[in-house]
């Protein structure tokens, strides 16, 4: 129990650091940058305290906003993703997900991939809608969501399988 908490705190700080130092400075084609920091929310233990997840996701997003000068868009997107995470689990793994031990960092099955895909899409669409905040940019929003999601998914999967803790 205690070690899980430590792993989560470590993940929180490391992912934020990597995001701020490396991925925020990546601008493919001028506007596409991946956001793999949401791996914290994706990898949070399934049966762990849910209000803990919501609060820590809010803090995660707020810290990102601090670094990006973006008001509260990351915080909103993160809180929404954290709250709807169980529903996405249900969608990807079926109704009985609570009784299985879901380990995302094992071989990539279609269920695991669909979970990451839906989570990233949900987070990014909220993020870019709130960022633009105007309806006339709807195509731009969709385009940014699509390309950024692709890059986020690729970097997330690389990070998951690159740093694979074998006991947890």
């Amino acid at each position: 129990m205690n070690s899980a908490l430590l792993v989560n705190i470590f993940r929180f700080i490391m992912l934020l650091a990597i995001q701020v130092v490396i991925f925020n400075n990546m601008n493919f084609l001028g506007y596409i940058s991946p956001f793999p920091y949401i791996l914290y929310i994706i990898l949070y233990p399934v049966n762990s305290n849910r209000s803990g997840l919501i609060i820590s996701s809010f803090l995660l997003g707020l810290t990102m906003d601090l670094f990006c000068n973006s008001g509260g868009i990351h915080a909103t997107a993160c809180v929404i993703l954290a709250y709807y995470r169980p529903y996405i689990f249900k969608f990807s793994f079926g109704l009985s997900y609570e009784y299985q031990t879901i380990r995302l960092n094992e071989s990539l099955t279609p269920e695991r991939f669909s979970f990451i895909l839906v989570s990233v899409l949900l987070h990014h669409i909220v993020l870019f809608i709130l960022e633009a905040f105007q309806f006339k940019f709807i195509w731009d929003i969709l385009l940014r969501t699509l390309f950024s999601s692709i890059f986020t998914i690729i970097t997330s999967i690389i990070i998951i399988y690159l740093i694979k803790p074998n006991k947890r």
Binding site: S51, I54, S70, G71, G72, T76, F133
Partner: peptide
């Protein structure tokens, strides 16, 4: 959990709208 979610969502949306 739902109340917590709504509270934090409210705070972050307020921050967003304020910044815009």
């Amino acid at each position: 959990n739902r109340l917590l979610f709504l509270l934090l969502l409210g705070i972050s949306l307020t921050l967003t709208i304020q910044s815009h």
